[in-house]
Amino acid sequence: MKEEIIIAGFGGQGVLSMGKIIAYSGIMQDMEVTWMPSYGPEMRGGTANVTVIVSENKISSPILSKCDTAIILNQQSMDKFENMVKPGGLLIYDPNGITRHPERKDINICSIEAAEESAIMGNTKAFNMIVFGAFLKKKPILTMENVIKGIKKSIPERHHHLIPMNEQAIMVGMEKVKDIQTIQ
């Protein structure tokens, strides 16, 4: 099993930390992982993206030109990363703020209203975990037990009381993810 994921959005949406939680959950599941952030000019322009690879085998290149899954959280990232999804791959996006919806016909597309759901939860910080839940529902590559362990490893101990909230947000994402396009 090897899953190559690109997560992209605005700085502050928790893109990098979602990637870190996926990577740490992978370690907890005894897998190899790489986490490669954007740290260049695009980051300074307010957008952030991270490439995460989770694999049962040794990972060669941490740099990708195609991915299995793209998690897209703003329009700039849609423009940049829609074409990087492998044919038959998965694109998950939050339609909030998206003016041009994905147009590819050869990939699976799902939406998750994470901004809206986090507002309903009364906690905008739950946003990235709602998105993560949507991903886990469509790609159940990590067990919930290892995800919780991964979250524990990823956040400082003083924030561990927030783990139940994160777990709840993941459940919301799993429940609310919508299939927009499913290909055979």
């Binding site: 870190k20 992982v33 790489t34 490669m36 740290y39 740099i63």
Partner: peptide
């Protein structure tokens, strides 16, 4: 280089 410096691995 910047890739190895910025990349997280176990």
């Amino acid at each position: 280089d910047g890739v190895i410096g910025q990349m997280m691995e176990k």
